[in-house]
Amino acid sequence: MAEAATLPPIAEGLFELGPPPALIGGRERATGRIVFPCPADRERFEPVRLPREGRIWSWTVQRFPPKSPPYAGPVETPFRPFALGYVELPGAVIVESRLDGFAFDELKVGLPCALRLVPFAGRLTYAFGPLDEEEDPK
């Protein structure tokens, strides 16, 4: 992933590079409610680092090429399906994310996963993948 680190992020303020990387959510100052991404209104929301590990809350596989625009990813023939889902970050929020590094047939609700940054169409985006092997699953 050394080369990936030199790629520009797909958006500013979406994640911290780390290591370890972290998604940046927004905590609503009045209520404590957390959303992702952090809204631009900083009087209402303050940026917060979100937990790096969570569990798959729901998932699907994108089997057909999304229309472009807005899709900026590769559309080969045949199209290479990709997985995506929602990941529950404990005590924070449920975020939508691409899922990277899982075999499609191992995806299931409740599966532990961790944030990673991945190259995407010449830029760097976020995804959730299997826990690092050296780490203890929480």
Binding site: I10, A11, P37, T60, Q62, P70, Y71, G73, R98, T125
Partner: peptide, 22 residues
């Protein structure tokens, strides 16, 4: 934000599948 569509997460069919899977 633009990245949401660019990264392929802005399809109505995905929403239906994700709500249903859960």
């Amino acid at each position: 934000p633009a990245w949401y569509g660019e990264t392929g997460m802005m399809l109505t069919t995905q929403f239906f599948a994700l709500k249903l899977r859960r």
